[in-house]
Design a protein around this nucleic acid. Structure first.
Lengths: 342, 342
DNA sequence: CTGAAAGCGCTTACAG
DNA sequence: CTGAAAGCGCTTACAG
């Protein structure tokens, strides 16, 4: 009764039933008498049998797998992925396994061919796209995916008639909350560290929120406090140095991601500025580190768990052919020590 | 000439050849005339055709996929994975794709059933195991994997006759280098933050190195400077508080991971101790953050890229039936500011 | 160099 | 409730 690589046929032989009955029993079909089913399942367990996914997938045209595409932001070099997305990966995997789906990961350069292949080759039933990309390049590729009838969910910007479904954070609102908070604390010269380019619409939306808050409060914007910064190690540091060189007085910083904010705080300290006394700092994302830096970072939280579940629910819905809606999640200001509010 | 879900048969028909020839041409078989091959490949491109992986896998008994099992260290809650392993994930994915393999990820609790299933169900050709686990539980599961003829590579401890192949870091040597460095800088009361339990042999090995360095230098060990700490957010902080409560003088800390070390530095600062002047700190892993904290953290680097490539080369070797050897990589001390050496 | 044919291990209408 | 049969889309000996 020891079979090395058992098939449903081996089990059928041992159980004295047809192979079709074995298949039914293993899938808990109500067509099989309970007694028969239990006997078959027991034999399967004894033999350490598992359904051959290739065979099942070939038959059913499904892989029960979701492909997760993460975009490298750093071209080539040290190839670090934003911790925000990396932790999202964990939650997506958990959410997927609840639905019985495996997760295939793939790191992509934005320049790469975009694996329409994953679905066409039946390796995955759908795709989830993660990463702050260059929207211009991005959009053309999304259109190609849509044209190939690929099912995909995007984390990020929900922009007018962008192809596909997405789950994103209301970045304008988030940027507004962050800036409002600083304004309410009496700060009037708030530097903006990040991107305002149309190529990064999610970051630009945070800037729009920053502008809106100024407008609402009747505080004029100072263009000279706007420093471009990319979300990579060392960028926030460099941005603060650039800001200091401009010799424009400032009493607060709104950084477009926590990665930039934390780096900026380090630069402030190295240059003799106290946070929050001299400069209040607010970030965006609430990465796990934010709580643990000194002073702890006030930031805008995007609910990662909810986002991950939404993305997985969405892609599973698309696979099943159900209607799926793009949604915008409300961000939440998390007040900590770096802004001086407590 | 527009087919919605083309198969090799569709291409054969268009090209006016047999389906077998299409299959050969697409796999670049030298048996096919170059002219024929190019014609077929062109048609495949035009039709956006990709080989059905389920069908190919069923035929060849291969999936060209590696399953990556990551162990959650934090039971349940916020479920954070050590950034060290998370960045390893990136390098493994890259290394795998060089060999033409996809990567399937799975988060596991150590208590879970250990997916002997992945290979048995032909979802993956082999497994890579990542995470600091509880060795006692771990070992029994490895034995079960080995019994089921599962191919797997482990990152971590290479312990006497542990089942399977592994790639690990010479932790004794690493712990020794870290401690030696502190001793050479004149520190004589070096606290140890981490685990010395047989349940975490890799961490215990770092402790062994710590002991060996003391022994070689003729410096007696002080048991009261040994504080248990787990590699999770907040643990290093708590450990320093415990250390301070013991009222035992100390002038250095060797933390068994960077996560603990960085947390410990925060606690030291909050309690009015200057790093490195009052207390020198050395960590282990060289996570990307280590370079960016203030002061920058002296640590022991494990070469992640090399490790990832080794694990992938190993598993690919096992899949091909080649002999694979477990290896121990030499760690490297990275001197930065937190120890006061510069 | 090419084709006809077998078969990988399942799932599921169809018939009873 | 169960079985016989077809077929998912490939790969690869076998024959020419």
């Amino acid at each position: 009764m020891k079979v090395s690589n058992p098939t449903s046929r081996d089990i059928a032989e041992i159980a004295g039933v047809s192979q079709a009955t074995v298949s039914r029993a293993l899938r808990n079909s109500p067509l099989v008498r309970e007694e028969t089913r239990e006997k078959i399942q027991q034999i399967a367990r004894d033999l350490n049998y598992f359904v051959n996914r290739n065979a099942a997938g070939l038959r059913t045209h499904q892989s029960n797998t979701i492909a997760l595409l993460l975009f490298d932001e750093t071209e080539g070099r040290h190839a670090v992925i934003n911790p925000f997305f990396l932790s999202m990966l964990g939650f997506i995997t958990r959410a997927a396994s609840k639905h019985g789906y495996d997760v295939l990961i793939s790191m992509q350069q934005l320049s790469d061919d975009w694996h329409i292949e994953y679905q066409a080759s039946h390796r995955a039933d759908g795709l989830i796209l993660l990463g702050y990309g260059d929207y211009v390049t991005y959009r053309a590729k999304l259109a190609a995916l849509a044209r190939a009838n690929t099912r995909f969910m995007i984390w990020g910007p929900t922009i007018n008639d962008q192809p596909g479904h997405s789950i994103g954070c209301d970045n304008i609102n988030g940027g507004c909350q962050a800036t409002n908070h600083l304004l309410q604390l009496g700060r009037r010269s708030i530097a903006f560290l990040g991107s305002t380019s149309k190529r990064s619409p999610e970051l630009a939306a945070r800037y729009d929120g920053y502008c809106a808050a100024h407008h609402d409060a009747g505080v004029p914007l100072n263009e000279r406090l706007n420093i471009p910064a990319w979300s990579a190690a060392g960028e926030g540091y460099r941005a603060v140095e650039e800001l200091l060189q401009r010799r424009e007085p400032f009493d607060a910083i709104f950084a477009v991601t926590d990665v930039i904010a934390i780096d900026a705080m380090r630069a402030l300290k190295d240059n003799g500025y106290a946070v929050p006394d001299d400069v209040a700092v607010v970030g965006f994302d609430d990465i796990s580190l934010a709580e643990h830096v000194t002073p702890s970072l006030t930031t805008v939280r995007q609910d990662i768990t909810l986002a991950a579940e939404g993305l997985v629910d969405g892609i599973v819905g698309l696979i099943r052919g159900e209607p799926v809606e793009s949604t915008l999640m409300a961000p939440q200001l998390v007040v900590r020590a770096s802004c001086g509010a407590r």
